[in-house]
Design a protein around this nucleic acid. Structure first.
Lengths: 211, 211
DNA sequence: TCGTAAATCTAATGTGCGTTCGAAACATGT
DNA sequence: ACATGTTTCGAACGCACATTAGATTTACGA
């Protein structure tokens, strides 16, 4: 071992990268160890020197993916000046989440895409981690609401779900060259804070206010 | 053949129902024909009397699922009085989409959950249908924007994607007894039209307007 | 240069699944 | 009751995959 536990770690990293990429593209069950091994430059059997099973491998991919968004959003909050507005807090959180998701991170998008497909046992392993990330958002939104930055008559749990859905779904349609990540984040925040509606001129008999 | 081509059609329907349910739960590759057959009350081999292959079966499930949302949203528009506000048009579309998704429709939720996992060839078969549904929403939103009901400075394509994401993601977290579908739709529309932000009292030095 | 441990290869094993096909069971009109 | 078409069964085939274990190579300190 020379500098910092090389070789085994390098291979391990290559395998994980290959796995994340392949899992994201093809889904859990459709991804074969042969494929992952080839992408990592080795034979399928060799994977077992580094991982005990396919499930162990996928668990680590899921783990890393979730850790990355979590850390990104957490750091986005810490980087912010202490006197930042709550809108800014939410805005940078949205940007951090989206950026991690869409910018060279197969791990994060793999997590989102395959989580619903993995065996129950593997899923159970990650519920704690998922909950922790949800809790982070819960805190951000709750503080904003308590401070009066968000309407007090909305169900924040619901808002969070809808928000996460809008953001996470982007892995299904986002294409690098088309719309910038920043633009997506801007639109999301606009919808979240102000909506995109305009009071309509009364057309005939009906008029209505928003729920 | 007695009344209206019974027996074969009944079995066919039972198989499709079982397939939709199982595909939705376990995903594409993880679902076995043995499982589907058992749920339909027959042997795996018998499925081949009704369908040529696993892919043919899944294609039909995807087809039905997409057709159901499409028709539901289309009918929601036709049912509406001609002089309805554009907000109401969008609102009922959201409600129709969500209701079809979450209320006893394994086909629709299966479509959403497994579309990303099916073999490329099967996917190609449905792009046309997906585009047609997207086009329906595009029309609804464009008319609303042109009439002045929606801000003119937003990218409607982006809005549509974020909206669909928020709605579709609900299949991952929705649980029948908890929040009513209507409440979800209300929150979505509130966010879409007005947002949930409140102008913040200026805290220190910073103040900001929305993008 | 040698020896030892780490890392990878190679070939084999077993299993589960999609699919096939002829035989059996069922239904229906005559 | 018979004959014909419809529907399901049941066993078998072949293949692709996860996993295993021993042989082989590679890396590196002495």
């Amino acid at each position: 071992m020379t500098s910092e536990q090389s070789k085994s770690d390098i291979s391990r990293a290559r395998i994980l990268d290959a796995a994340a990429k392949t899992f994201r593209q093809k889904g859990y069950a459709a991804t074969t160890l042969i494929e992952i091994a080839k992408a990592a430059g080795m034979q399928a059997g060799s994977l077992y020197y580094h991982f005990g099973s396919k499930d162990e491998l996928i668990e680590e991919v899921l783990d890393i993916g979730m850790r990355r968004v979590h850390e990104a959003v957490e750091e986005s909050q810490e980087r912010l000046p202490a006197d930042s507005s709550y809108r800014d807090r939410i805005r940078v959180a949205v940007e951090a989440h989206l950026t991690t998701l869409l910018k060279h991170d197969d791990y994060t998008s793999a997590n989102i895409r395959i989580f619903g497909q993995v065996p129950e046992e593997v899923r159970q392993h990650h519920i704690r981690q998922r909950d922790a990330y949800a809790e982070l958002w819960r805190r951000i939104l709750t503080k904003a609401q308590k401070s009066g930055a968000l309407r007090s008559d909305v169900d924040l749990g619901l808002v969070r779900m809808l928000l996460m859905g809008a953001l996470n779904w982007s892995v299904e349609w986002y294409q690098p060259g088309r719309t910038s990540i920043q633009t997506i984040a801007d639109h999301m925040c606009l919808m979240l804070f102000s909506g995109i509606g305009i009071e309509e001129p009364i057309r005939s008999g009906e008029n209505e206010t928003v729920a």
